[in-house]
């Protein structure tokens, strides 16, 4: 008897998001578990955005910092380099410089940076705050307005500040990242609260909070998996936005991407190790169901793109 592949069908579907204005990119939209195209439809590739920031990346390890030497002192040059030389499909600008403990840039300064970057690129832009809940609620309002009409993703709205940030994203017609802290029930709750404000659920991106391989990645993996199952099997619309794996910032601060080979010869080349770490972290979350990634090292991005090629 011939072997018949068992197939699952689902009642739910992940929302499809289109971002950008000049060049647009679409992600999400599948109605099956990650890459199970034989059971339904996987219309779009997961999207990887290159991470840049508004201040020089002094706290990034040398292996990833040196890639951007000569451009990372200026966010516009950095963004152009990612777009023109690295062929970035999207760019994620993290406004770390606005953090009160860093450069404490004002919302107006942040808005100017955003405008300058937007003027220099034509790929979609993701605009992230400094993860200071109070400051973000000022900064992200200003940058939402500065980016009006550019169809960006703004983030991250959290329990403490979602109201002002969601209102600003809504008023300026952007997509919005909703982040909760590694708890599927709180993730659902935040998405409910944001949509109860009138924000369109089909413009949300869920960030269940990331981590690096070896540092609790299995928690992120499990929450993502359960979010996807709720979206598909239970047709839970609050869980149908695409998911974000904001991995670069977690990967490039762990010991495995920092410890020199001279200290740990058995761990091998630091550079290869860092790239492998970012690749493996992204690859895992790809299989958990994330559709959007923010990454740092071009070689890791290329490796993950190749992985996606093979899975699609």
């Amino acid at each position: 008897m011939a072997f018949a592949v068992p197939k699952e069908t689902y009642s739910g579907k992940v929302f499809e998001l289109t971002i950008g204005s000049e060049k647009t990119v679409v992600f999400g939209g599948e109605n099956v578990l990650p890459f199970n195209a034989f059971e339904g439809s996987v219309p779009n590739r997961p999207l990887i955005a290159y991470e840049i920031q508004d201040i020089p990346p002094d706290d990034w390890p040398e292996t990833v910092r040196k890639v951007y030497e000569g451009v990372s002192g200026n966010p516009v040059a950095w963004a152009k380099y990612c777009q023109d030389t690295l062929n970035a499909k999207a760019i994620a600008l993290r406004l770390v410089g606005t953090h009160p403990d860093r450069n404490n840039y004002s919302p107006e300064e942040a808005a100017k940076t955003v405008k300058d970057v937007l003027a220099a690129i034509n790929v979609p832009l993701i605009i992230l705050g400094s993860n200071n809940a109070d400051k973000d609620s000022l900064v992200l309002v200003a940058v939402s307005e500065a980016a009006k009409g550019k169809n960006c993703i703004i983030g991250k709205a959290q329990e403490a500040n979602y109201k002002t940030i969601a209102a600003a994203a809504m008023a300026n017609n952007h997509k919005l990242i909703a982040m909760s802290e590694l708890d599927i029930n709180l993730s659902k709750q935040l998405n409910i609260l944001i949509t109860q404000m009138g924000f369109d659920k089909e413009k949300l991106v869920t960030d269940p909070m990331c981590s690096a391989l070896g540092y609790g990645l299995e928690y992120t993996y499990s929450v993502m998996e359960r979010i996807r199952l709720a979206a598909l099997a239970q047709n839970d619309m609050t869980m149908q936005p695409p998911m974000l794996g904001d991995i670069g910032m977690y990967v490039w601060k762990v010991k495995e991407t920092q410890a020199p080979e001279s200290d740990l010869p058995s761990w091998g080349s630091l550079e290869e190790r860092g790239i492998a770490w970012e690749t493996a972290t992204a690859g895992s979350l790809l299989l958990a169901g994330a559709e959007l990634f923010i990454m740092r090292h071009p070689s890791a991005v290329q490796a993950v793109e190749k992985f996606i090629d093979e899975l699609m």
Partner: peptide, 9 residues
């Protein structure tokens, strides 16, 4: 259905 504090709403 997945629990959330606002599930009744």
């Amino acid at each position: 259905t997945l629990y959330a504090h606002s599930y009744l709403e």
